[in-house]
């Protein structure tokens, strides 16, 4: 229920947008798939509650960073797929830059990568 294995909610909240954008970078995905991916790729350390995922997707959609579209594939249920928009790509790049700088500063100050 809304818990994360990494106990840094704020960090997670700030990064959530970047994570979703990054997962959509390669190809379009639907909500359930995104939730599953986050769970599996973070080895369940980063569990995204769907209660937060969908509002996040809707917010990204309203900000025109992602675009949702109902797609019906042969033999599958009709699902809503989200894909990155050009603005979303730019936002992702900007997020990455910010994080890279943040991590670099963190490294310099704490040397935690060597820890």
């Amino acid at each position: 229920m809304g818990h994360a294995d990494i106990g840094t909610r704020d960090l997670q909240k700030g990064s959530a947008e970047m994570i979703v954008l990054a997962l959509l970078e390669g190809r379009a995905r639907h909500g359930y798939e995104l939730a599953k991916l986050i769970e599996s790729q973070s080895e369940s350390k980063l569990q995204f509650h769907v209660a937060s995922l969908y509002p996040l997707l809707y917010r990204l959609e309203r900000k025109l960073l992602v675009e949702g579209r109902w797609v019906e594939k042969a033999g599958e249920r009709r699902r809503r797929f989200y894909r990155l928009t050009p603005a979303g790509r730019r936002a992702l790049a900007s997020h990455r830059r910010t994080w890279r700088e943040f991590v670099t500063v963190l490294n310099t100050l704490t040397g935690f990568s060597h820890a």
């Binding site: 229920m1 809304g2 769907v50 209660a51 937060s52 969908y54 509002p55 996040l56 809707y58 917010r59 309203r62």
Partner: peptide
């Protein structure tokens, strides 16, 4: 998956 529905509803409303 959702538990308390009021919170996501609020978040969705805020997002929309």
């Amino acid at each position: 998956q959702f538990g308390d529905w009021a919170a996501p509803a609020r978040e969705i409303n805020a997002a929309e």
